[in-house]
Design a protein around this nucleic acid. Sequence first.
DNA 1: AAACTATGTTTGACACGTCGAACTTTATCG
DNA 2: CGATAAAGTTCGACGTGTCAAACATAGTTT
Lengths: 180, 180
Amino acid sequence: MHRKEQLSPTHEMYLKVLYRLGQQNDVARVRDMAKGLGVNPGTVSAVLKKLEQAALVHHDRYGIVALTSSGTAVAECVIRRFETIKALLTEVLGMDVETAEVDACMMEHAVSPETVNRMERLVGLVQVGQVDLTALITSPIRMKGNRCSTCEMDNVCQAETEIKSEVPPKRTTLSKSQRN
Amino acid sequence: MHRKEQLSPTHEMYLKVLYRLGQQNDVARVRDMAKGLGVNPGTVSAVLKKLEQAALVHHDRYGIVALTSSGTAVAECVIRRFETIKALLTEVLGMDVETAEVDACMMEHAVSPETVNRMERLVGLVQVGQVDLTALITSPIRMKGNRCSTCEMDNVCQAETEIKSEVPPKRTTLSKSQRN
DNA sequence: AAACTATGTTTGACACGTCGAACTTTATCG
DNA sequence: CGATAAAGTTCGACGTGTCAAACATAGTTT
């Protein structure tokens, strides 16, 4: 079974935007994509050519753009990854939606299928109320080494080497094994 | 406060490898980096030039390569991200180490500082035994939409459109931005 | 239909990260 | 020391993704 070329993050983004546009506007045009991607129309034209060669989109000159069935499948896959990561960030880690979306949009191209599956499950558990970590995670009790909030500010990180341990034992939600 | 240029994933990788080499071998040379990065020595030479301009490494012609102090700081930051994500994947989601490392290596360039902080905290909670999700996450009970394990195999995803739901609607933050 | 405006395409240029091959230095060995 | 090997650099080339500007087409107006 020949494994297909891995799509670049860029191409995944193009497909994702195209999918969203299809949902919203029913049809998508080059200009919409350019807008949605924050990119030059000329660039869209160029990329569309490749996407068409890969049979992921249909696009006749000066016409509308549409996903093929495999393009749709890929887009849905990307969107699933995005939504899963976003949900993990907001619902499990308690991040704000804006940051979560930015992060998810970068991470969505980097996760393996199995990771997505497990993330999805974790999110499900939280949504179902079986697990609630937000309080714990966002509580003011800081753990050692937890101090990189301005990390990327200037690409310098205050992190220390000994990052682990030092949490007050305050058991809450289901814990099955304590190996400490 | 002028925010520094964001480093490319590539540059972050170069710094990370350099850091690791310094730890292991005490000194690092171009050939080591090339090996560690799976890349041509000529490429390393080229990239090193930029890294040097950015004052992240020292490198005199035909000599050894070393991180500057800011290079070291960046490398430590990247490594912290890597270790955090890896720990999340293995210890929280129960992934195998190999996959976790591959995933973490891609994701490490995509997470915001705050996300890392929270991931770190979650990992801490699990390590301390306050939380244990592995059994739940990996249990055979499959949830709806949890079905993309072969997703990237051929870039086609079996995921259905209705991936969500079946879980009590606990939040509604969804329909905020549609361009992501 | 002619003009004008929206939209889309092409072209030439560029930065990045990469390669392979030719060349240069440095190191080592006989 | 001088020859040879190992390591590093440079050079020319390439694919990707991007832009701006020139050009082409389609769609509306009048």
